[in-house]
């Protein structure tokens, strides 16, 4: 069985990858950089990907690495300060090393460019743990056991974090309404 044309992956998965990147970067421009990097990495790796490879696992790995790369690049570029800020409340076992707070909070959370409520900006008002659980479960579609493997803790805790995150988002959307 030959691999499907790369275009099929693009059509099926690219918006989800962009959304995942937005869940991992506070600034939309950083999310776009990470998306572009993931797209290039997929383009580069697809020809040599084994035909029986797990595409879902391959894609999430590429997306995660692209996000980590952009965070590292931003961290290197950041103006040195005398005292580095503590990684923000990501808790132990977090495979992202708390790096996702380095981009800072968005300037205007909740408001998209067209006055639409931008739920990806609202994600940055959640705790990092809730945001990551929502990103891996709701945005990417991983089951809670795999979410727990990504963000640490038990599957039940991951489920709880995602549920709390969604509940908080729902309240924020209600509040953002004129």
């Amino acid at each position: 069985m030959k691999k499907p044309p790369f275009d099929e992956l693009v059509r099926t998965h690219s918006v989800r990858i962009l959304r995942f990147c937005r869940s991992m970067h506070a600034q939309p421009a950083d999310a776009e950089d990470a998306y572009s990097e993931a797209f290039l990495a997929a383009l580069r790796g697809y020809a040599s990907l084994p035909e029986d490879a797990n595409l879902e696992a391959w894609l999430i790995t590429i997306a995660r690495h692209a996000c980590i790369d952009v965070h590292r690049r931003n961290a290197r570029r950041a103006i040195p300060v005398e005292q580095l800020p503590e990684p923000v409340g990501t808790g132990p076992g977090n495979t992202w090393s708390g790096g996702f707070s380095l981009g800072g909070r968005p300037e205007n959370p909740g408001q998209g460019s067209e006055g639409e409520i931008d739920v990806f900006a609202l994600l940055w008002r959640l705790t990092d743990r809730q945001r990551e659980a929502v990103a891996y479960h709701h945005v990417w579609g991983l089951p809670y056991a795999e979410v727990a493997a990504q963000v640490g803790g038990t599957p039940a805790a991951a489920r709880r974090a995602a549920a709390d995150g969604i509940a908080a988002l729902r309240r924020m959307i209600e509040e953002e309404r004129p």
Binding site: V10, V15, L18, R19, E32, Y35, V119, F120, H138, R177
Partner: peptide, 19 residues
């Protein structure tokens, strides 16, 4: 407005044009 729809629902035209 259900947040799950925006997180995992169908792509908006804006998202399509962005990718």
């Amino acid at each position: 407005a259900v947040p799950e729809d925006r997180l995992s629902g169908p792509a908006s035209a804006l998202e399509e044009s962005m990718v």
